[in-house]
Design a binder for these strands. Sequence first.
DNA 1: GCGACAG
DNA 2: ATCTTGTCGC
Length: 230
Amino acid sequence: MSWLPPLDLTSWPTTAEKAMALQDELRPLICPVTPPGARFRTVARLDSAYADTGAVTAAVVVLAADTLRPVASAVAHGAAAFPYVPGLLAFREIPATFAALEKLCTAPDLLVCDGQGLAHPRRRFGLACHLGLLTGVPTIGVAKTVWGEYAEPGPERGAATDITIDGAVVGRALRTRAGVKPVFVSVGHRIDLDTACAQVLALTPRYRLPETTRHADHLCRAALRTATGN
DNA sequence: GCGACAG
DNA sequence: ATCTTGTCGC
């Protein structure tokens, strides 16, 4: 018995129209609130790597929130299930990512995704939202580039400004390192924006991106090379 | 109409 | 995402 509910890939969308319809259908189920008493003792970072052949490898690295030390990791590989389409990244990334998560013995307390959560144009349902609903685990999106409008936050670490789309606050530009381009944080599911930003700051004591990113990035790239044959 | 567009 | 040379800084 896994901590993760099964993912039925036979009904995975194969067209942009069906994918967008699914996003519209799932959007109302998002809960942007941290469950009472929630504790984030372990945090997982997710990443994917692609080969020109269409092969994909996903990696998950779990770390202890207090020490930022890795405590578990897993990889999974397969074929890209969807082309890259702006706004539909989740349909490309989730199948392999989910397979990697299935290999973990226990559920992480928080999943940190590469990309957007609610800071997603038009449908407000980015990768982090989708993965949050599928896993039931709190998720946040940390993107390197933004969709939406924001004012440049102050130069010091911790400075933040709201990101808005059509006038609605959908995330926050957060300076994780003094004098360096901010990251763009948005809620995925089961966490609030303030808590999400606090978690991202806790994960970035020295680099712009969360501590585990290099680890997850190196892990899936190395695994992809092995699976592909260098 | 044209360009821009998470990873 | 991925492909690449050089460069700056701790």
